[in-house]
Write a protein that binds this DNA or RNA. Structure first.
Lengths: 245, 245
DNA sequence: CCGAAAAATTCTGTCGACAAAATGAGAGGA
DNA sequence: TCCTCTCATTTTGTCGACAGAATTTTTCGG
């Protein structure tokens, strides 16, 4: 069995409370259940999830290491406040990392893997005709594509980075950005060209196309978050009486 | 703000025990005080550093997140075992990240920063004539250069990645690799060309030169770790009775 | 003498509790 | 009315303790 992180969970998946909390909190942050900048109170969270503060603190330390929360020494942790600046910086990083993934995928892809990529593209093309194409694309298709490329690249460190450690952050910042009309179809075209380059084992081209693909997404996001200033959460964050825990 | 003693209390750097332990353990692992693969027993470490297991576990969770230790569910954590495969993978990642840093540095560098880079190169050139040139180069000069580039790039996420989160890992794997004779002088030449490109604000060239520079280091390391197999620690790790804590 | 089962020990995962500090509320004075 | 000082409450950082599991040691049979 292969979980979403791509690791083989042959050994009985014993998840400690800390692991479970880490996943739940990550998901909750990405899904916006905690508003940006909201304070995470340890006693309340402990009561909320029915656990002690020990495992909770371990989970929070991991969230902090992944930059999903920020911590001020004697003051506690707060959910990260997405900013246009950070989003752009993150996309620049993602651009080169995914470029490397495409390059290494072009280097190592087997015929079977190339076929798998092409099959996925066909499926995505069919899905694009459905009514909920946009939401599906943003939620699943895009992730599937980049996930598979990262796996084919055969670089465990890179795979862990793209599909695990940074994946949540990417999702968090992608949530901000509603897909512009027509972007999905264009993205599929770009995906197809990238797969072509990988099928040809053309490393340089695969990397260049992937970088342009990510750069296009970044520019779309930059335009979307256009004039919202450094921290768009200056309007609604800090403390909303009810929603923060 | 000025306190009653008249000194500026610039957010007095309060470090929790967890933070302190995290730094100490990271340093100890990189410096080889814990042999690769050695088990880290929580009670012994707690006694060793005179702290409780609570903060220690938080520090260990952060070490785990940074891949300095590996954790098996009901079995504890062990120091990572450096392998040729992982080292090569890490250098591929570093290649594109430092390439991005050079690109962004070429984009954003001010005249002052360019002058600082050139001054540092002059200093490194003089240091290269000293008797302990090699060890100095590996210990300081190389880090200084890449550190400064990352700062000039003006990408906080990238800077945190290169000079913080991944820096320890890079050091760990670099420890394995003794600098080959003549490499230092060649590296300095490569550094000079990179700075030239940055001074010219030639983004593409700066990125390309930096990537070649890292790739050269990687190839040198690949040759050095040549035939040592996947896990060179198969000879001496596991448990050496005295040295593990 | 060697191998296997059983007991003892150690260790991980988790919990509740305490002290210092920070936040917030409330009284008092200008 | 508004500011400030004081006090109460919440929260962070830390510690010691317990249950279950894993490891090691001991013991017993072949």
């Amino acid at each position: 069995m292969v979980n979403h992180a791509g690791t083989f969970e042959a050994e009985e998946d014993f998840r400690s409370l800390s692991d479970s909390l880490f996943e739940q909190l990550s998901e909750a942050i990405v899904r916006g259940e905690f508003s940006p900048g909201a304070k995470l109170s340890e006693p309340r969270l402990a009561a909320r999830y029915g656990v002690s503060r020990g495992p909770l603190r371990e989970a929070i330390r991991r969230l902090e290491e992944r930059k999903l929360v920020t911590r001020t020494p004697r003051q506690g942790v707060r959910v990260i406040v997405p900013s246009r600046k950070r989003a752009v910086e993150l996309f620049h990083i993602r651009e080169v990392l995914e470029g490397l993934a495409a390059r290494e995928a072009a280097r190592h892809a087997t015929p079977d893997e190339i076929e798998a990529l092409q099959a996925m593209l066909r499926q995505h093309g069919q899905a694009l005709a459905r009514p909920d194409a946009m939401v599906y694309w943003q939620a699943r298709a895009n992730s599937d594509f980049h996930f598979l490329i990262a796996r084919i690249a055969r670089n465990e460190q890179l795979f862990a980075l793209l599909s695990g450690e940074y994946y949540t952050l990417f999702r968090l910042y992608r949530m901000q950005h509603r897909l512009v009309p027509g972007r999905a179809r264009r993205a599929l075209l770009e995906h197809e060209r990238i797969v072509d380059a990988i099928a040809d084992h053309d490393r340089d081209l695969a990397e260049m196309l992937m970088r342009r693909h990510i750069a296009a997404a970044r520019k779309s996001l930059e335009a979307s978050m256009g004039e919202e200033g450094a921290d768009q959460a200056s309007t609604a964050c800090s403390d909303l009486g009810a929603g923060n825990l």
